[in-house]
Amino acid sequence: MALANFQFILILALVGIALPFIGVGVAWLLRPKKPNKLKTSTYECGVETYGDAWSQFKAQYYLFALIFVIFDIEAVFLFPWAVAYGGLGFYALLQALIFIFLLFDGLVYAWKTDALSWQ
């Protein structure tokens, strides 16, 4: 079953990634191609572009990604637990409560240190 699904998803992924390129290929046959210096310059609201864009950005974005990663892993652990939950005893609920509580702790810490507010 898993392998049958795998073949389907694999074909889907390949078609999904190929389709945009096919579309762009068709458009390449149809469209005009006359680039010039002004056309291919970087857009910056009509002013001359200064430097390239690959400059430094705020660490704030990184902090949000960081908290996200931790919660994402929590989800990976909790989803199988949720599926099995119907057949498990009270003990399972207790363990999951402790698990969620421990991670809630991390969120509270982030809140208290102002990592969650956008500066």
Binding site: I17, L19, F21, W28, P32, K39, T40, S41, T42, D52
Partner: peptide, 24 residues
Amino acid sequence: LTKEDVTPDGADRVSFNLAPALMV
């Protein structure tokens, strides 16, 4: 389909073309 497709100067061509494919 018939619009000119402009790739800006200094763009990273590999990722520039890969990004819309990932979205689709």
